[in-house]
Each structure stands twice: as C-alpha cells, then as structure tokens.
Simulated scan of single mutants.
Amino acid sequence: MRVLVTGHQGYLGTVMVPVLRANGHQVVGLDIGYFADCVLGSFPGDPPGVVVDLRDVTVEQLRGFDAVIHLAALSNDPLGALAPEITYDINHHASVRLARLAKEAGVRRFLYASTCSVYGAAGDELVTEDAPLRPITPYAESKVRVEDDVAALADDDFSPVFLRNATAFGFSPRLRADIVLNNLVGYAVLTGEVRVLSDGTPWRPLVHAGDIAWAFATCLTAPEAAIHCRAFNIGTEQNNLTVAEIAEAVVAAVPDSTLVITGESGPDPRSYRVDFTAARQAIGFRAWWSVPAGATQLYQEYVSRGLTSAEFFHRFTRLPHLERLRDTGVLDASMRRTGSVSDPATRF
C-alpha cells in the first residue's frame, strides 16, 4: 500500500515508519518538524516527506494514497492546559479537516491515533471500547471530538478506525521524556532516584511504541469489515499497573536506584484500567512488550547513547522544547513557523 504518515518525525512515527516499510508498504511522511532534530544518538533517517503545518494540508497532497495514518498532534497534557485553544485548533479541527480532505482525495482507509485517556476517571473496573468517555484534559477531549466527527464521514468508500493507545513507553530515537515510564527511568539514570510526585495509586495502562506500530500495521491490512468505523483499545492487560508498580519496575531495572514517592502533586484524578480483548478478537493484535522489559530497554539505551540532564529535561520534554521554539521566534503564538519552510532561519 501507499501510506501517508502524519507526524512521522515524532516519537511514535520514528518507530512506526520502519515497521511499515518492513511490511512492504511505500511510506511518505508529513510533518512540520517540531521534533525533527530531537534525536538521541544515531538515527538512519526518515522516508521522503512533505514539510507542512497540519492546518495547511491540501487535498492534492493526499491524492494517490491508499491509507493515511494520522499521528500528528500536540501530545502533552501540560501543553494542552497552557494553550487549550491551540490544542483544539491542531488536534481537533485540523485532524477532522485532514480526514475530510483524505476522503475527497480518494483515500479509503484512515487510521487515527486516539488514546485510552478518553476514559478519564474510570476507577478500578476494566473498561472496554463501549465504556462512557470521561476525558479530563483538553488533549483527551480533543481526541473524543475527532472520533465523533470523523466517524460521521464513514461510508462505503471511506473507512476510519480509531486506535485508542494506552500510555506509550519504550525507546525511540526521537525520544519523549515526559511520559511516565520513560520519565521515571531517565530520572533514575541521571539522579539515582525513581521519583513519583503523585501518591502512586492511580492506574495506568501502558503499551510499547513498537507494539503501537504493529497495531497500526495490522489495521492497514485487516479486512475492511473488521475495522470499519471501529475503536480499538491498544495495549495488554498485563500492563495495567499503578504508578507505584511502574516505579518499582524502574527500581528493578536501574542499578542502585531508590524509590521516592513524594505525593507533592496530590492525587491524580486520571485512573483507569483497560480491556484489550476487542483488538485481539477482531484483528488478531497482541501487544508483547512488558513494562519491566521496557524499563530495561530504556535504561540500556539511555546509558549507551549518553543521555544528559539538559537533553532529558529540555530537548526531549515537549513543553519546554516548544516554549523554546516560541521564545526564540521560530514559532509564533499560534505554534506556526514565523518564516517560510525553505527559510534557514525557521529550521528547528
């Protein structure tokens, strides 16, 4: 298949593109490049791609593709709280517009990266795709709105599918340090402490970036009837863990580290355990990476690639990185480039 991947220069896209290519697909990327240079260690490079703001995509840029995998988003709850209007502009309005243009361009399959955080404060019971959606943050709310609006576009010629990913973890050359397992391992490597700011009791479902890539690859070629206008939770029940349990896995993976639960941020209302049966039954997808294995992978990669505190706390943490681009004039207040794409002054 000929596949367009938005956000191919992000944390997930950088892992997903090689998986798609290994499965024989022709991949083209589409990305504004916010994180193109946020690479830890060596990286083999990107597929051919289009440099464009998601809000400015044209129908002509979407013609000739069999499928669109839509990953691009402002993926950070603190950023969403800081600028919710921009989060809705990019994550909601631009995403729905992309789906409409894809349908107009003749794209048959539209794979959307949603999130299990749409379940919000769900308690201790396992939630399925039919559970009530209770998004707490602007980021999660934007995902719910996209699912609703894109589902309305489905017809015999346009099949959207919504992959509600659990919280991602695992190494990517374009690292994210602001997601729970990646953060706890990095902090332990750099300081010797596994520091939990909440009380450690909230439930979190986790899934490895590589498993997410395989889920999307599976949906690309699954029978249309199996995926048409459906939502799938992506992850595995074995990775439904409390934040304290996640932290304990990090202590086991990082030599000489100690666990510190400060509780300074108070109780976190986001707590949910997720049922992943539907994806196993409908498309045969299984996630294989465990949290302990992911913690070990992250520890080994951080050490071998020489992760530094400056990189960890600034370059690979979404909010300070984007604030730096804005404060230095590379981006304006609406998160748009301040010059043309070809202008060297606007490079990231």
Rank of each mutant, 00 (worst) to 15 (best):
P135C: 12
E323W: 02
A99L: 12
A166K: 11
Y272K: 11
R2M: 01
L241H: 07
G13Y: 09
N182V: 07
V196Y: 07
E129N: 04
A152Q: 15
E104A: 15
Y34Q: 02
M335N: 01
S172F: 04
L54Y: 03
R108E: 14
L163M: 10
R145I: 00
D124Q: 13
S309L: 13
S290H: 04
L190H: 04
D124P: 09
A122H: 08
L54H: 05
R286N: 11
V250H: 00
F158C: 10
T296N: 12
F169Y: 11
R195P: 00
A213V: 04
S271Q: 05
L82S: 05
E85Y: 06
S340E: 15
A73S: 15
F110D: 09
P292N: 07
S172A: 14
A152G: 06
A72F: 10
A279S: 15
R286I: 01
F216W: 08
A121C: 11
K103E: 06
K143T: 00
R318S: 12
L101K: 02
L126C: 07
A73E: 06
L74N: 02
A94I: 05
G7C: 05
R204I: 03
A222T: 13
A99C: 08
F216G: 02
G33I: 10
A222F: 04
P267F: 01
F276W: 10
Y302S: 03
P205E: 08
V50A: 08
D343I: 11
E224L: 14
D46M: 11
I86A: 08
Q9L: 08
H93R: 15
N182P: 09
V150A: 06
L325I: 03
D157V: 09
N182F: 05
L111Y: 08
A231Y: 04
Q238G: 01
F162Y: 14
V118G: 09
A252G: 13
L74Y: 07
R174V: 10
A122S: 13
L331D: 06
M1Y: 07
A102Q: 06
R230Y: 02
L4T: 02
E193W: 12
I136V: 12
N76K: 03
D256A: 15
S142Y: 07
E311D: 15
T242E: 02
R100Y: 01
N240V: 01
H314N: 15
E104C: 03
A81F: 11
D77Q: 00
L111A: 09
L111E: 08
A282T: 10
G29W: 01
C219Y: 02
E311A: 12
R195L: 15
T242H: 04
W203V: 00
V59P: 04
D157T: 13
N165Y: 15
P267H: 14
L259H: 01
V207M: 06
I69K: 04
T308N: 11
P47C: 15
L319F: 11
R174W: 01
A213M: 07
Q26R: 14
